[in-house]
């Protein structure tokens, strides 16, 4: 039984840096570990010759399972599966935590079936209680939430971004390092042909403190120019609901929501967005939501702290101009 108390976090260091998601997962993992009394392990996939393992020691990690690879960034999730599987065979985890991104959403379920365990995707919470693991996750397009109980593990959970504080270093912690066997690329069946980025050079949506997002109410691609002027004043990133992406008004990587990005800015300004559950699933955890919409009955006003009813073509430029004046004052 003792073996089934351990918690394992899957982390990936590109260019020597761990993403914020790793530190969020460590906060959750430490909370789980405090309940189960097991060990906290991290599977660290490292690109090149950087030393991410020693950085992790300060975060209350007991064991780092490390796999080095020259070019992780160019490999698909298939390449990661045997490595994480090997770590699980050693760590015997009750729970495996991964970030809920494109990689985790594919790796997580496959890993769960490979280990004959259970999978919970897009979780907003994971708790250990009376010998079982409970996962809470949005469903029905973000309108409802379900809680699932897993009696036996391992439970592989992918966790949404921005819900847990970043873990802080703990004095006096130490971890041991276990080297995992290198990956054998000859066994890979999915081969990368090419990769293209459609993200602009502005702030990344995932990291932005302020986001200005537009929806169908922009009524065309020109609407995003109006939003970009406001975003420039606020140092904000620009995002969108699914409709403008589908209509080709903006890059698809701007999509926020259930099937797009999950963002947690301090300020989220939704312009011409009706506030469908599918959209709010990606931005509902923003600290302050502001809605600008011509329809006073729009559902978005139920989620917004501040609202203006009106045509964005008038409201947004006025907002931008006044923000500039306030900054200069």
């Amino acid at each position: 039984m003792a073996a089934e108390k351990n918690i394992l976090v899957v982390a990936e260091a590109t260019l020597g840096k761990l993403p914020p998601a790793t530190y969020e997962l460590l906060t959750l993992a430490r909370r789980l570990k405090a309940t189960t009394g097991g060990a906290l392990g991290v599977v660290l996939l490292e690109e090149g010759d950087v030393d991410g393992a020693s950085a992790l020691a300060a975060y209350g990690v007991d064991v780092v399972y490390r796999a080095k690879c020259a070019d992780f960034a160019r490999l698909t999730s298939e390449a990661r599966l045997p490595i994480v599987q090997a770590a699980c065979e050693q760590a015997q985890p009750a729970v495996v935590l991964l970030p809920h991104g494109v990689l985790g959403a594919e790796l997580g379920p496959r890993l769960a079936f490979r280990l004959d365990g259970g999978a919970a995707t897009g979780c907003v919470d994971v708790v250990a209680q009376a010998g079982s693991i409970h996962c809470t996750r949005p469903c029905y397009g973000g309108l409802a939430r379900e809680e699932q109980r897993f009696e036996h593990g391992p439970v592989v959970a992918t966790v949404r971004a921005g819900l847990f504080e970043l873990a802080q270093p703990q004095p006096g912690s130490q971890s041991s390092i276990v080297e995992l066997p290198a990956l054998d690329p000859s066994e890979l069946r999915v081969a990368l042909v090419k990769r293209e980025s459609d993200a602009g050079d502005g702030p990344r949506l995932e990291d932005a403190k302020v986001i200005v997002a537009g929806g169908r109410g922009l009524e065309g691609p020109e609407g995003f120019k109006v939003l970009q002027d406001l975003a420039a004043e606020l140092g904000a990133a620009v995002g969108s609901s699914r409709v403008p992406c589908d209509l080709g008004w903006c890059p698809h990587s701007w999509q926020i929501g259930l099937t797009g990005k999950t963002v947690t800015p301090d300020l989220y300004i939704a312009v011409g967005i009706s506030g469908a559950g599918h959209h709010m699933a990606g931005c509902g955890n923003a600290k302050t939501i502001v809605a600008i919409n011509s329809d006073p009955e729009a559902a978005i006003f139920q989620d917004a702290r501040f609202g203006v009813v009106g045509d964005y073509r008038e409201v947004v430029p006025a907002l931008a101009a006044q923000v500039r004046k306030l900054k200069q004052a």
Binding site: V290, I292, V308, A318
Partner: peptide, 15 residues
């Protein structure tokens, strides 16, 4: 809800 005589004014007041 932030209001104004015009949508423009409401935008300024929102700021």
């Amino acid at each position: 809800f932030i209001t104004g005589a015009t949508a423009f004014e409401a935008g300024e007041r929102l700021a």
